[in-house]
Amino acid sequence: MAFTDTLLRLQRLAHLIQRKSTGTPQELADKLGVSVRSVDNLLNTLRNFTEVEIEYCRERCSYCFAKPVKVSFDFIIPLDSGGDVRGGRKFISNFFVDAEFLRWEGAYL
């Protein structure tokens, strides 16, 4: 998956979890257009990055956040970037490390 595809899928995943409308893992995979294994990877990425607990509710047949959270996906683009596009594994790793400033008490991602 490309970096932007992953971010868009994480955004959609977080939105579906917040609405408690993910469905079963297979239904969620179909909604996101990925395999069930990729759903597991996306869930782990969201859990690790946000440090938010995500649970599966058998009654609702949906994943849900254990505690209320604010979900926000914003991109920060410097005005002096000159249209440069940066990417790659090292950039993505640095992006997630640098994104620590986006966390604040009571609200993640």
Rank of each mutant, 00 (worst) to 15 (best):
H15W: 05
E105I: 13
G82H: 02
Y108F: 12
A14V: 05
I77Y: 09
E27I: 05
E105H: 08
A2G: 10
V71H: 02
T4F: 09
R9F: 00
F73G: 02
L7Y: 02
L43S: 02
A14F: 05
G106Y: 06
I76A: 01
Q18A: 12
A2Q: 14
V36E: 13
S81W: 09
K90A: 12
S81R: 10
F73A: 10
P68D: 13
T22E: 08
L10V: 00
E51N: 15
P25S: 05
S38C: 01
V36R: 15
Q11I: 00
T6E: 14
S62H: 07
M1G: 13
L13R: 05
K70G: 09
R86G: 01
K90R: 12
G106A: 06
F65K: 04
F65D: 07
S21T: 13
T50D: 06
R86M: 09
I54L: 02
S21C: 09
S72C: 06
D84M: 11
L8I: 02
T6A: 08
E55V: 10
A99Q: 06
F91T: 09
E51V: 08
I92T: 09
K31E: 08
R37L: 15
A107K: 14
I76H: 11
F96P: 00
T24A: 06
S21V: 06
V36Y: 06
F91R: 05
G23R: 13
T6F: 03
I92K: 01
P78S: 11
V52F: 09
L109A: 15
R60T: 10
Q26A: 15
V52R: 15
V97Y: 01
L109E: 14
S93E: 15
T6G: 01
V97H: 01
E53T: 14
A99I: 02
Q18C: 03
L109K: 11
Q18T: 05
L109S: 14
E51M: 10
V71C: 03
L10R: 02
F3G: 00
V34T: 10
R103V: 05
D30E: 12
S81E: 06
S93G: 01
D40Y: 13
C64A: 10
Y56C: 04
S62D: 03
L8T: 08
A14W: 01
L46T: 05
R103P: 03
L46E: 08
C64I: 05
L109Y: 14
F65W: 07
A2P: 03
N48Y: 09
P68L: 01
F49S: 07
F73S: 04
K20L: 05
K67G: 00
K20N: 07
D30C: 00
I76K: 08
A107P: 00
G83I: 06
R60W: 10
E51H: 15
E51F: 13
K70Y: 06
F65R: 07
T4V: 14
D84P: 00
K20E: 15
P25Q: 14
T50W: 03
Q26C: 01
L109V: 15
D80P: 00
C57V: 03
R37Q: 12
G106M: 04
S93F: 00
Y108D: 12
Y108K: 13
V52G: 00
I17D: 02
D40F: 13
F95K: 04
G106V: 05
E105G: 11
L32I: 07
Y56Q: 06
C61G: 02
A29V: 04
D40R: 14
L13I: 10
K31T: 12
R89V: 04
Y56K: 08
